[in-house]
Design a protein around this nucleic acid. Structure first.
Lengths: 368, 368
DNA sequence: GTTAGCACTCCAGCAGGTTGAGTGCTAAAA
DNA sequence: TTTTAGCACTCAACCTGCTGGAGTGCTAAC
């Protein structure tokens, strides 16, 4: 775990470059910025010069601190809600804090155990993701968010057809990691049970072990090639599987503990709260955002308007990817107000992502 | 559709008995109560005597209306927030209104089409329920709520086993209505692929067409009976299926559009809002409530504290059941503040429940 | 460069006054 | 007997002016 004065270097949308600033930022002003952000995160109240000197014995007078704060405001790290309130961090201020000043907390064994206990073995991936989201939420006191693997990144394992009432066919698709997708499609009724078995075997043999992009390509090429040659059943098989896989399934998003947003003492803007909850309901904008964060490795932090989602304005997002043996397949994290305890949230997200990765890689959750 | 002055007779927790009251309630006081409730539902503001006479030409002076309102308050149908505000309906007032005064609106063809359009054929039951919830929410401007069929009411159709990594087995269970449940279980690695096929065939042959309670009983009795007699594979099959079915799965709850609760102009009590959203997240208390409402037929209305859920205090719930050929299997409805437009919401819930029933019965959504 | 002092600003809270909506009561009218 | 008009009363909502406190910016001294 990172120690003080090491650079944490979390990347987000912007690269503020915490080095570029050091010409203007003395060690002292850094310390003061840190104290202010810490204080504000803890209290939610604007921080005044006197509070800075009092709570952390800096051997400086309030007047001196005021001068530094004034500089910090000019640099864009702080802002005052009004003349005679204290200062609060700007987004830029949070960014600098996270990039250069943050001292991460170790997770306590109790917290680790708490996360582990929430993921009681894999019995159904959906369940696992949901529980992970709940754990993230419970420990961070913000909303936990888990994006299930996108369909395209999964590996074909098996397909099954179940005949429902008249002309309806349930197709169950299973990926290697245990992700299950199902869909009902229309199918002509001439297909017998044996036909279905043959189709199943044919598809499973041909496609097993491919990822979904490959599967799509394969089906498409086979369809062209074999249209007039082989027997009708093969054509049917391709048609059915094509129908199932043509849609972009998956990328399912689990959001847990969204109600923690209502815990903020004085809810500032009800309109924003509405937009936020609506974004949680629609999910697709969030999915896009998480897709982006899936490009980079490690813990990523998006502060305020760094993500372009106007709907979740004023919120920050801490994410990390999880992997299986084939590489990164999904993203999880915490979403909360920009004023969140990053030092606590980051290790939680990091640890949870690693835990999920291990579980998906080994299929074993006992030994971490 | 019901017309004015017919009794609607929706039942809820309490039976106020709209007849017992008529000794005290004249035609005129009924009319005034109706106007007040209508007005309050429309405006959200306490209704004064003058507003009653103005907006609905009753040929009565405000003073007369005041006398009647005073009576209605004494009877417990109205309450005043404070001395010089108008009156608002009590829960009892809503109950009387819903039972005796309500004039249901017909759905417009546009609304019907809107509901139908939201359920674009069954491609996956989960998806269907979710979309139905969204439709309920969109049309009612409140939260839509759909409870998927409980596992115990479903009919066994098919079971499939898919081998995942080391020792993990994915079990996919399909019910006759197309409900899919999957679960990962541990299984010893000695089972070959052929063993699995045999197990699958054995189970599907033995259990097909039974409901889940029967299936459980059957497995249990078979296990006792055959433990020492037949080959090991049968025992294994029973063991596996038992592991899958022993849990109470299903009863999944879809809640859509919860954010509409935030649309209320002046949010009264933030604490209540929190409790509400937390109840939506936990779901199980709501599931219990909906389970209860599944006993009775037709549209059911729970107003305010008639349901015992303190968490959703001040909210009303309008529900209806949906059926397939085997009878009632699930519940859907709308949950919103007690001050909701019942005349609009009730037909929406009713129509949606019928639509879902038809779709589940015929497997065809074209012709309604 | 740092600090003390001072004037200034602004929010929060409180008291007092006003307005308007709505009520309850009473006495007169129907 | 029922309905209505009139009047006094109440109370929330709003505005106002006032005060205290927290915090700032500036300047001059250390």
């Amino acid at each position: 775990m990172l120690k003080k004065s090491q650079k944490t270097g979390f990347s987000g949308g912007h690269d503020l470059g915490c080095m570029r600033m050091t010409t203007e930022m003395t060690e002292r002003s850094r310390k003061i910025l840190e104290v202010i952000v810490d204080d504000y995160i803890a209290s939610g109240e604007p921080v005044g010069s006197r509070a800075v000197t009092k709570r952390h014995n800096l051997d400086l007078s309030p007047a001196t601190v005021r001068n530094v704060m004034s500089d910090l405001e000019e640099l864009g790290f702080l802002a005052s809600p009004h003349t005679s309130a204290g200062r609060i961090p700007t987004e830029k201020g949070y960014r600098y804090y996270v990039d250069c000043l943050l001292q991460l907390r170790e997770l306590t064994p109790k917290e680790k155990r708490s996360i582990e206990a929430s993921c009681p073995g894999i019995n159904g991936l959906d369940k696992l993701f949901q529980e992970a989201g709940k754990a993230l939420s419970a420990l961070s006191s913000h909303a936990g968010i888990v994006m299930a693997p996108r369909f395209t990144t999964t590996i074909y394992k098996q397909i099954e057809f179940v005949r429902l009432s008249r002309g309806k066919l349930l197709v169950v698709f299973v990926s290697e990691s245990g992700l299950v997708q199902n869909k009902v499609i229309d199918a002509d009724e001439t297909l017998t049970q044996e036909d279905l078995v043959k189709i199943t075997n044919y598809l499973n043999e041909m496609l097993s072990g491919m990822n979904i992009s490959e599967v799509r390509a394969k089906i498409s090429s086979e369809m062209k090639q074999e249209r007039h040659l082989y027997d009708k059943l093969v054509g049917k098989a391709l048609e059915l599987s094509g129908a199932v896989l043509k849609e972009e399934l998956g990328g399912q998003l689990f959001i847990e503990g969204a109600s923690s947003f209502l815990d903020q003492p004085g809810i500032v803007d009800m309109g924003q709260m509405k937009r936020l909850f609506r974004a949680f309901e629609q999910k697709n904008t969030l999915i896009d955002l998480l897709d982006k964060s899936q490009q980079a490795a490690g813990v990523q932090i998006f502060i305020g308007s760094e993500h372009e989602l106007a709907q979740i304005d004023g919120c920050s997002l801490v994410t990390a990817n999880y992997q299986n043996v084939h590489g990164t397949i999904g993203t999880l994290g915490v979403i909360g107000p920009s004023r969140m305890a990053y030092s606590k949230v980051i290790p939680i997200v990091d640890y949870t992502a690693r835990l999920i990765s291990r579980m998906l890689e080994t299929g074993d959750d006992k030994e971490i």
